[in-house]
Design a binder for these strands. Structure first.
Lengths: 166, 166
DNA sequence: AAATATGTTAAAATTTTTCTAAACGATACG
DNA sequence: CGTATCGTTTAGAAAAATTTTAACATATTT
C-alpha cells in the first residue's frame, strides 16, 4: 500500500468511526488529516485535502476545538490560523467522554429527576416509578464512574484491569 | 406530573438519548415503552402507543432483539408475538457496548492492520506510521478493556472505582 | 375457500442532518 | 482608499437516515 492510499484509507475509516461517536464524518476526517500531518495545517489546506467548502472546514474545525480534539497554532508573521490535532489517544477518548457526558448524561439525569414527581398506586404507575428509580440509580453510578475514569491515570487503569482478568 | 405526562416525557427523552448511542430514535422509544410496561406488548400495541407504522414497528422491534435489548415472549394460544424489554440497565449497557465494539472497533482494528503495510522514509510516512502504531496500541488496549468491562461483575466494578476515588 | 389477522420486505416519501454557496466583516497591504 | 485574504454566518441545496406505504407471505378463522 502506498502512503497516499494509506492516508486516504485512514481518513475514510476515521470518518466512518467518528459518525458512530457523536462526531460527524467531516469533523472526524479533519481530525484524521491533522493526526497524520507532521505540521499544522491552515483551513485552506484542509479544504484542499478533503475537497470540502470553506464554510464546512471552518465549522468543523471550530467544532473540533470545542471538543478539545484540535487546537489553533499561531505562527509569527502569519495571518492565517493553523491547526493541530490532539494526538494523545487517551486524551482524545477522555475529551469525547466528557463532552458526551455533558451533552447526554446530564440532561437525562435532569429529566429523570423531574419524572420522579409522578405518583400513584396503580400497576402502571408503580412499574413506571420502579423503572425510573432504577435508571436513576444506575445513571448516577455511571456518572461518577465516568468521572473517575476520565480522571484516572491510564496506566493505573490498564494495570487494574489486567489484574482483574487474572 | 401525571403518569401519562411522565410516560410521554420518558419515551421522548429515552428516544433522544438513543440517537446518540447508535440506536435510532424510534428503536429507543420502543425500548422505553417496553421498559415501563408492566406486561409484554404486541406489535399492534406498540404502533398504537407511538403512532408509528406497522413496518416501522416491525423493523425496529427486530433491531432491538438483534441488539439484545428486547425479547419475544410467546403466549400460549396467541398467534401474535409479544415483546418485553431487557430491563436490567447493566445488561442494556453491556449489550450496547458489545454490539458497538463488534460494529465499530473490530472493523477499525482490521483497517489499522492493513495500514501497517505502508512503508517509507520521508517525514510524512514516518509520521503516518507513528500515528497508526499508536492508535493500534491504544485500540487493542481499549478492546481488551471493554472485554473485561463487559465480563466484570457490576458490583466489583463499582467498588473498585470507589476505592480508586479515595 | 374466502376473509381476516399478523409478520416481512422493498420502494417511495419524508424528515433530519450535513454541506455548499454566497454574502458579510475584519484585517492587511499595495 | 481599493483590493485581496481570511474567518464567520446562514439560507437553501444535497445527501443520508428514517418512516410510511403497499405488496406480499403465511397462518387462522369463518
Amino acid at each position: 500500500m502506498t502512503i497516499q492510499e494509506g492516508r486516504d484509507k485512514f481518513i475514510q475509516s476515521w470518518g466512518a468511526l467518528g459518525t458512530s461517536w457523536g462526531i460527524n464524518r467531516t469533523m472526524a476526517q479533519i481530525h484524521a488529516l491533522l493526526l497524520i500531518s507532521p505540521q499544522s495545517l491552515c483551513a485552506e489546506e484542509v479544504m484542499e485535502a478533503l475537497k470540502i467548502s470553506r464554510g464546512n472546514a471552518n465549522m468543523n474545525l471550530r467544532a473540533l476545538m470545542d471538543w478539545g480534539l484540535a487546537f489553533k497554532e499561531f505562527k509569527p508573521g502569519e495571518r492565517r490560523e493553523f491547526f493541530v490535532a490532539e494526538k494523545d489517544m487517551w486524551q482524545v477518548v477522555r475529551n469525547i467522554i466528557l463532552n458526551r457526558k455533558k451533552r447526554e448524561l446530564e440532561p437525562t439525569l435532569k429529566v429523570l429527576d423531574e419524572l420522579s414527581s409522578v405518583e400513584g398506586e396503580d400497576l402502571e404507575t408503580q412499574e413506571f416509578i420502579r423503572v425510573i428509580k432504577d435508571i436513576k440509580l444506575f445513571s448516577n453510578k455511571a456518572d461518577s464512574l465516568l468521572d473517575s475514569l476520565t480522571k484516572a491515570d491510564p496506566n493505573w487503569l490498564m494495570s487494574s484491569f489486567i489484574k482483574m482478568i487474572k
